[in-house]
Design a protein around this nucleic acid. Structure first.
Length: 818
DNA sequence: TCGGTTCAGAGTATT
DNA sequence: TCTGAACCGA
């Protein structure tokens, strides 16, 4: 015990040892959140307040769940097997497996990942002859998932017009299709589990009695449905211990509802609110930047990070001419760090959007610096792996039409579109699965299709006695997949991935504690083999309550194969590229959340990119509203910046470029407003700090500037679309009231940005960004930047094909146009 | 049925 | 500019 609680700081200790009541822990970045969570768990158990079976701990990612399990077993001499620690989806899956009948699901229902779901929707639209131009599958997927995450079944979705009525119909048809085929999507796992708890008093009370303590990680990321799910579980008096950080809420776009934190505090009458503000990760200047920046957000619960490790180095800021130069500079800095003895893997390069990685990769590659890009295709998402899984799914559940269509003609068996159309017609007529409909078919196509179903039947029968890894191996061989990739020129890697799938099956069994000698296709309980503890350990207990006389042997059990398939859906695996190597780490800021590095580069700090244009204008969410600003979107971007900054332990670089290739066109942007929200004293500019920022291109001011501006006849002279990133502080300075020439210093109700811009204007340069000009030698151009004043004044002009030039006004002869 | 061409779209993402 | 998906011809 003493070792368990040793070295906790005061608020950490207070949180860990709170009484069995609801609590909200506001855990700042790097404040030891995971430690508090796991130590709380360990403390509750080791003090005998609750047994390992009496707690439920839920996370968002498998990684976080694994970490919690690992740390917990290091702290406690207790087997974590069978404990309810996992992701929302994993735990819901577990619950649905245990009560599949009550949940209205077949014993071995399969889980659709996003890819599968989209395919299912496309298939549905085709079957129903729906115009997929009017109802794009992606939109429908979004609509369906959105509804489910709000806890809404089709009947409960409000539809006020024909279009949304049709969407609701399609939602219903999609759910029917899933039900027919015995599959559930990710959102359905949660919703089904929620509905089960809500409707079935017996099951609900069982779990309410069982879980006395509910611990939730990353509470700021919960959506409404997850909040309600927790509510049902906690309804019997469990103590909810919610840990989160509203300042790190960066997933609103995928349904996260930060308001759940405030709602929790209110609805659960939380009396224990603890803030963890001591940061053990970053040095002072870095924290000062984070703290000062986030003060610009209005909607916060409020928190201020501190450290006792000193100021450390200043935060370095670099301005580059363009994206390539930014990357080049970065490469030089990294080289310097490596020379100084840094490991490359201690350095991370962060960016707002994936597209930005290309230029950086190019520069790193050219310099021979090893790097690793996070994200991308993961193991179980690979085409060849999905193909193999589709065969396995058919063995487990022949009604899975999605799996059927995926592999019926892969490798090719001469089964073309026409045969499949005939089959689909027949299946529709008989309301049966495609697999079942094959039997009723006649003609030339029938023979080939029958050969396919025989293959599957044969595999199912002959592999029934085999342990899972051997089953997988057999399927890879006899499906023809192995031969197919062997014959393919570039099939080597795919073949290796298929071999890896066999290993993954073996590893899965080992992890779940299922004996390797258990036949894969035979129900685990029926075979009297050890239960896959994580999946079924509590079933007897549940059924024991329901029907004390029912013995465990009568249990409907899931096969190791079915269990492995759901594992494959729920955990997509890593993208293995370059793992373990000493390489510079490249990733989006989103992907960096939760990680930390000695050195961090945050790149592309430009208006339009970061904060991202769409977030600021509220597009496409909420429709295109040019010129509008979206405060909540901007605040989320700022939190993203906060996350980025707080990844760094020791050294932080912030960089931006004056122009950047975007969508094939050169874009000019102002530096990000976030840079101007950092405390000057904590920064060190590596390049001269230029003057004021202007309003971003898409703002009110942008339109003001371009109105009345006649684009030069030669299209090339006009900056690329949205190009006058540096446009128009001239008009925006007056809050958009009077347009045109800025001629006074009325800065009364202006924000800091506008004020600075207005001051700049007072210095009396008669040019403005966005202004068309004519140069004797370079021709027509557009001003994209202004610097200095008086005799030192320079303007940056885009002359289209001629290029972008800085011109000193005292030297260059410019004529204004328009 | 494959392979080339064309076209649109290009923000962040876990399960 | 670059990518992925859809489409058409052999």
């Amino acid at each position: 015990m003493s070792t368990l609680l040793a070295n906790l700081n005061e608020p950490q200790l207070a949180a860990v040892t709170l009484p069995a009541e609801h609590a909200l822990i506001l855990a700042g970045a790097g404040s030891g959140k995971t430690r508090v969570l796991t130590t709380r768990l360990a403390w509750l158990i080791s003090t005998g307040q609750v047994g390992p079976q009496g707690v439920l701990a839920v996370t968002f990612t498998n990684k976080a769940a694994r970490e919690m399990l690992t740390r917990l077993s290091a702290m406690l001499p207790v087997s974590t097997r069978g404990m309810w620690i996992g992701t929302f989806h994993g735990l819901c899956n577990r619950m649905l497996r245990a009560h599949h009948r009550d949940a209205g699901l077949p014993q071995s229902f399969q889980i659709l990942d996003s890819q599968d779901q989209l395919a299912a929707i496309k298939r549905l639209l085709k079957t129903l002859n729906v115009d997929d131009e009017r109802f794009p599958p992606r939109n429908l997927q979004h609509f369906i998932n959105g509804a489910k995450e709000e806890g809404l079944r089709p009947a409960q979705v409000e539809a006020h017009d024909d279009y949304s009525r049709r969407c609701v119909e399609l939602y219903q048809a999609y759910d029917d299709q899933c039900q027919r085929e015995g599959v559930v999507d990710f959102a359905e796992l949660l919703l089904r589990s929620h509905d089960l708890l809500e409707r079935n008093q017996f099951i609900r009370e069982h779990y309410q009695r069982r879980f006395r303590h509910i611990l939730v990680d990353e509470f700021q990321d919960t959506n409404r449905l997850q909040y309600r799910w927790l509510g049902l579980l906690a309804g019997g008096g469990a103590a909810v211990f919610a840990v989160g950080d509203d300042d790190q809420s960066i997933y609103a776009f995928r349904g996260a509802n930060v308001a759940n934190m405030a709602a929790f505090e209110r609805e659960y009458r939380v009396r224990n609110l603890i803030k963890l503000e001591q940061n053990y990760r970053s040095q002072g200047n870095i924290l000062a930047c984070a703290n000062t920046l986030i003060l610009n957000n209005r909607s916060r619960l409020g928190k201020n990070l501190w450290t006792d490790s000193g100021d450390g180095e200043p935060v370095r800021v670099h301005e580059a001419l363009d994206d390539r130069q930014e990357a080049q500079w970065l490469v030089e800095e990294v080289r310097g760090l490596v020379r100084d003895g840094w490991a490359r893997s201690d350095v991370a390069v962060l960016y707002r959007s994936n597209a930005q990685s290309r230029v950086i990769e190019h520069a790193l590659f050219s310099a021979g610096l090893p790097y690793r890009v996070y994200g991308g295709l993961r193991f179980f998402e690979r085409a060849e792996v999905k193909h193999a899984l589709a065969y396995l799914r058919l063995i487990e559940n022949p009604a899975d039409d999605g799996a059927f269509l995926r592999v019926v003609n892969f490798p090719t068996r001469g089964i073309g579109a026409r045969s499949l159309e005939a089959l689909q017609d027949s299946a529709r007529g008989g309301a049966s699965s495609l697999f079942a409909a094959v039997a009723g078919l006649s003609g030339a196509a029938a023979a080939k299709l029958t050969a396919f179903t025989r293959l599957i039947d044969g595999l199912a029968a002959e592999t029934r006695r085999l342990p899972l890894p051997e089953l997988v191996e057999q399927v890879v061989e006899r499906s023809g997949l192995a031969a197919h990739y062997l014959a393919e020129k570039e099939g080597q890697e795919r073949l290796e991935n298929l071999r890896e799938l066999v290993n993954a099956a073996a590893a899965y069994l080992a992890e779940e504690g299922i004996g390797q000698d258990v036949p894969a296709a035979v129900g685990v309980a029926a075979a009297a083999a050890p239960l896959p503890a994580n999946l079924l350990a509590d079933v007897p207990e549940v059924l024991g309550d329901a029907a004390p006389e029912a013995g465990g042997a009568a249990l409907p059990a899931m096969t190791p194969l079915a269990a492995f398939l759901s594992h494959a859906s729920l955990e997509a695996g890593d993208n293995q590229a370059g793992e373990g190597a000493d390489a510079v780490q490249l990733m989006t800021i989103h992907a960096a959340k939760g990680l930390e590095f000695d050195g961090v580069f945050v790149t592309g700090l430009e208006e339009g990119l970061f904060p991202h244009e769409n977030a600021v204008t509220g597009t496409p969410r909420g429709g295109v509203r040019p010129g509008a600003t979206d405060e909540s979107g901007l605040e989320e971007e700022r939190r993203l910046m906060y996350v980025a900054i707080t990844r760094a332990r020791q050294r932080l670089y912030l960089s931006f470029a004056q122009m950047r290739m975007l969508h094939g066109q050169t874009r000019y942007s102002m530096r990000s407003r976030f840079l101007d929200e950092l405390p000057e004293g904590s920064l060190k500019w590596l390049t001269p700090r230029t003057q004021a920022r202007a309003e971003p291109a898409w703002s009110e001011g942008y339109r003001g500037a371009w109105e009345g501006f006649d684009a030069p006849a030669r299209g090339g002279a006009r900056p690329a679309q949205g190009g006058a990133g540096a446009s128009a502080w001239s008009s925006s300075t007056r809050g958009g009231a009077a347009r045109g020439r800025a001629d006074n210093g009325d800065t009364g109700r202006l924000g800091p940005h506008e004020q600075r811009a207005a001051q700049r204007f007072d210095r009396g340069i008669a040019y403005r960004v966005g202004q068309g000009v004519m140069h004797a030698r370079f021709g027509e151009g557009v001003i994209v930047g202004i610097e200095g004043s008086g005799d030192d004044a320079r303007v940056q002009v885009d002359f289209g094909r001629v290029g972008v030039k800085w011109l000193a006004l005292s030297v260059a002869k410019l004529e204004t146009l328009g």
